[in-house]
Structure formats: C-alpha cells, structure tokens
Design a protein around this nucleic acid. Structure first.
Lengths: 190, 190
DNA sequence: CTGCCTATCTATAATGA
DNA sequence: TTCATTATAGATAGGCA
C-alpha cells in the first residue's frame, strides 16, 4: 500500500526501482493512449528501459511512435519495415522451393542408384551382392514393388502400350528370383 | 468533481476537450519526469496539441526529447538494420548452400542416368539408341572420358587395386566403338 | 480563458502468495 | 521473479469565481 509519499529521487534499491519502473511505464502507456483517444491527437512516448540500453519501448505502438516522430524529421519508417518484410518472405519462399527441389532430386537419385545396382547385379550375378550391397536390398525391393505396381496399372489402363524401361522389368525378374521383402507396397500416385 | 467515470472516447465538446487535454498533458509531463528521475532512465513524450497540427510539444524538454528521439532513430534503426542484415546474410548462405547441393545432386543424377542408358544400350544393342537417346550421347561420351581418366589415374597410383564399377569400364568399350567427342577432359577431383 | 476546489476515480508502494 | 491485494497518494471532471 502506498503508505510512503513518493520522494522524487532516484530509487537506489534495484528491485524496488525495477518494480516501480514497470508499474509507472504501464501507467504512462495508459495515460498516453487515453489522451490520444480523448482529445483526438497524435502523441507518443519513448522510454529506455534500465539494463537494456539500446532497446527503447514506445507507445502507443512502435509504428505509431515512428509515425509521430517521423512527422517532424520527415522520414517514413513504415515504408522501410514493410519493404524489409516483403524481402524476407520472398527469401523464405526461395529457401522452401530449393529444399523441396532438393528432396525430389534426392529421391530420384536414390531410385537411379538402385536401378544401377540392379543392372550391375543382373550383369554379373549374385557374387557382387556382398555385404556392401546388402544394405540396398530393402530399397531395391521397395522400388521394384513400386515399378511392378506401375506396370500393372499401365497394362490395365493401356493394354497395347508398353513404355516401361527395360531395367525396371528386369527388376521384376530379380525379385522373382527370391529377393522379396516384407516391405509394404505403395501405389504410385500419378 | 470527477463524478463520471471517464468513457474512453473522443470528447466532442470542444471546451471540455481542450480543458481535459491541458490537464492530462500536464499530468503526462509530470509522470514522465517522475519516472525519469525515479528510475534513472531516458524517456520523452511528443504530443501534437489540437489546433496546432505542426507544432508538437516535448518533454522533458525539446532538446531532451530530440536527444532521446535521435537515440531512438539512430541506435535502434542501425541495430535493426544490422540485425536484419545478419539475418539476411544467414538466409542467403542457406540458399547458396542449397543451390550448391542441388547442383551436385543434379550432376550426380545425370551421371547415373547416363550409366543407366549405357547399361540398357549394352544389354539390348544399338536398336535402342533411337532419336530419343541420341541427345544423351554427348554426356555419355563426356562421362566416359571422365571415367577413363579416373581409371588411368587409379591404375597409375595403385596398380594392384581395381575398384572401378563394371559399367564404367563398359563405358570405355562403348566409346571405343566410335562415340567419342571433342569434349574437353576434366580430371576428377578427389 | 485561467485557476482553484473537491468528490471521485486512478495509479501505485508495499506486502504476501 | 512475477501476480494479486490493498490502502493511500495522486490525477482529474465538472463546477465556480
């Protein structure tokens, strides 16, 4: 309870000073917004918080304060801010796009890698399927399943049309030779 | 006597509005000087009086206000700009990195594509090298040259070691069959 | 207008959770 | 440290000179 009359002097106790600052800062903000609304005028306040030397706080808002201040030094800050925001979102879009493209390429790359491995295997027999290659078998079988689904789909929809790459149909053979896995089959989305 | 609770809305009566403005303006000034002294901080307010559109009033003093405002404009703006610049360059770095990775992946992808084509060609003969495939011949030969260089390099440095993929050595045959180009040869950088 | 008055409203210092 | 409380200091709307 405010028993003590405020003595208009610097508050030495840090805790008290901080508390007082917070309360009075809020009060100030309220007063400013009130006079602004009641009297239909422009007004603003700028306060440098203690312990945060370079981060002033403003009322009624930063843009509002900037608007008021720029009135008398003739600079429109809102333009700047807006411009910067646009630039930033543009850059973020570019990043997202690149990342997506990257993802696609990685997948495509993986697919081709597996196909190459298949080709190598079919050309030289199982002696090349050593411990270094065994790690590819899962993907091998997965892509084979995918290709099989694709082929069957094409055969059903366009029975006379055969565009499936040769290597992919070889992949089917390879799987038929006993390298199937329990990978779940996923339909290819065209 | 303040019998009526203040309703936070524009005061339509000019006389009342003016009176309120004057009182509240003084109160505001007092509050600002108080918080300034009590908490040892910099603060200022700028108020545009009604009927005097282009002549704002300042506290704690015009020079004081200008000092605070210039701090506000100068320091906070430059900080912001700096920060934004940092953020922007960080984002640009990410973009560059992504683009570079993209480029590498594209190249790798191309290489594998060509290898696949080689494989297909070797397996089924030249009847598959139709007009759709002819466009790949340049890259085909380019990568073959690259692979040849790589192989020769390895043979020179490690004569007993043979790790070159089979398809690549097949590529050498393919080129020997007469598909060479005038592509400049680039040494592979390990 | 300009101040002053005063009943009431508002802000807030000190305290406790 | 941050909220909620509360009693008191401070601010102020409307009236009046």
């Amino acid at each position: 309870m405010t028993r003590a009359k405020i003595e208009l002097a610097y508050i030495t106790d840090p805790g008290k000073r901080k508390a007082t600052f917070k309360k009075r800062k809020n009060g100030l903000m309220k007063k400013i917004s009130e006079i602004t609304v009641l009297c239909g005028i422009d007004a603003c306040a700028v306060v440098y918080s203690p312990d945060v030397p370079n981060k002033p706080e403003f009322w009624p808002s930063e843009s509002g304060a900037r608007s008021v201040i720029s009135k008398f030094n003739g600079v429109s800050e809102s333009e700047k801010t807006k411009k910067m925001f646009c630039q930033e979102s543009f850059i973020r879009q570019r990043i997202d796009k690149s990342q997506e493209q990257l993802k696609k390429l990685k997948n495509e790359n993986r697919k081709r890698e597996i196909s190459l491995l298949m080709c190598e295997y079919l050309t030289h027999g199982s002696n090349n399927l050593d411990s270094n290659n065994i790690n590819y078998l899962k993907d091998f079988s997965f892509f084979t399943d995918q290709n099989l689904d694709e082929i069957r789909n094409k055969v059903t929809v366009h029975p006379a049309q055969e565009e499936t790459p040769v290597i992919y149909s070889r992949g089917e053979q390879a799987q038929a030779q006993g390298h199937g896995t329990n990978f779940s089959r996923k339909r290819k989305l065209n």
